[in-house]
């Protein structure tokens, strides 16, 4: 449980980064959320053997990290934390897909290896973009932006509550686990005990939900969720969103790496 605790603490740090005050932080969250969405959709839409065309996309997270003044090692560590999932997903591609697609000198690169690299690059890009987005916007900001661009309010509120109480819940969970460990004398957790722990946690969550609901009712909650909206979607937001989106779409149809490559070889030949 200690590791989950640690990861969460780190997540709070990501949230604190969102309190920064750079030009990127000050943009209306909607612009950033939409630009990131366009980015993710474009990156995901490439064919499964595509590798070179993905390279220029790294520009987006890099520029955002630089302008948003985010700590690079920290962001890299966060991305690395999620990479094993991508590795597992792509692991078997080189084994099953042995057709040679690219010949570099005497070395034949199979489709499997290409798609494996492509999967890993895509996950780094999309996960990185999402982490950077939270780092420059903050999770509540992202939720509110999603709601303001049309996500049903219920989901936005659910996400906000999830975010608020995940800390309280893991706290409770790790306290229970600690209490078990102290009396377990090194014995591993048995399935029955695990079930009971999780069941208790569910019941406690339920009771807490009731108390929170009471606290909300006590302050006149009627189903309408009022939130501050102090930023507006102005010229700078429009510029930010449209220029990044155009850039992504151009990159989607024009392989910039290849163009650069042929330019360079063209000059030298």
């Amino acid at each position: 449980m200690a590791s989950i605790d640690g990861a969460l603490l780190d997540f709070k740090r990501l949230d604190r980064l969102a309190n920064g005050d750079t030009a990127i932080h000050r943009l209306d969250p909607r612009a950033k959320v939409l630009a990131t969405l366009v980015f993710i959709v474009t990156v995901v839409s490439f064919g499964k053997y595509e590798v070179t065309a993905l390279v220029p996309f790294f520009l987006f997270p890099v520029v955002m990290i630089a302008l948003g003044n985010l700590p690079v090692p920290y962001i890299l560590k966060k991305i690395a934390l999620l990479c094993p999932f991508a590795l597992v997903v792509g692991m078997f591609n080189p084994i099953f897909d042995r057709e040679v697609l690219v010949q570099v000198g005497s070395l034949g690169i199979t489709g499997g290896w290409l798609s494996f690299v492509s999967i890993v690059m895509r996950s780094i890009l999309t996960v990185g973009a999402a982490i950077v987005l939270v780092g420059v916007t903050g999770f509540p900001g992202v939720c509110l932006a999603l709601e303001r661009v049309g996500m049903p309010r219920v989901f936005a509120v659910q996400l906000l509550f999830l975010y608020r109480y995940i800390f309280v819940l893991t706290d409770e969970g790790s306290r229970m686990e600690r209490a078990r460990k102290l009396r377990a004398f090194g014995r591993k957790m048995q399935p029955g005990i695990f079930g009971s722990l999780v069941g208790h946690l569910l019941l406690r969550t339920w009771q807490r939900a009731e108390r929170i609901h009471m606290a909300m009712l006590a302050r006149g909650f009627t189903g309408e969720f009022h939130t501050r909206t102090d930023t507006r979607f102005g010229g700078r937001e429009l510029l930010f969103l449209s220029s990044w989106s155009t850039f992504f779409i151009i990159l989607r149809f024009l392989n910039l790496s290849q163009v650069m490559g042929s330019l360079v070889t063209g000059i030298f030949s």
């Binding site: 975010y163 608020r164 109480y165 108390r211 009471m214 009022h226």
Partner: peptide
């Protein structure tokens, strides 16, 4: 338990919750 009472993203939002509902 104040954790039951503070459910908004920031202190400001939380204190504003009641007045906004009014």
């Amino acid at each position: 338990d104040p954790d039951d009472q503070l459910f908004m993203p920031t202190v400001y939002d939380d204190v504003a919750f009641g007045p906004l509902n009014l």
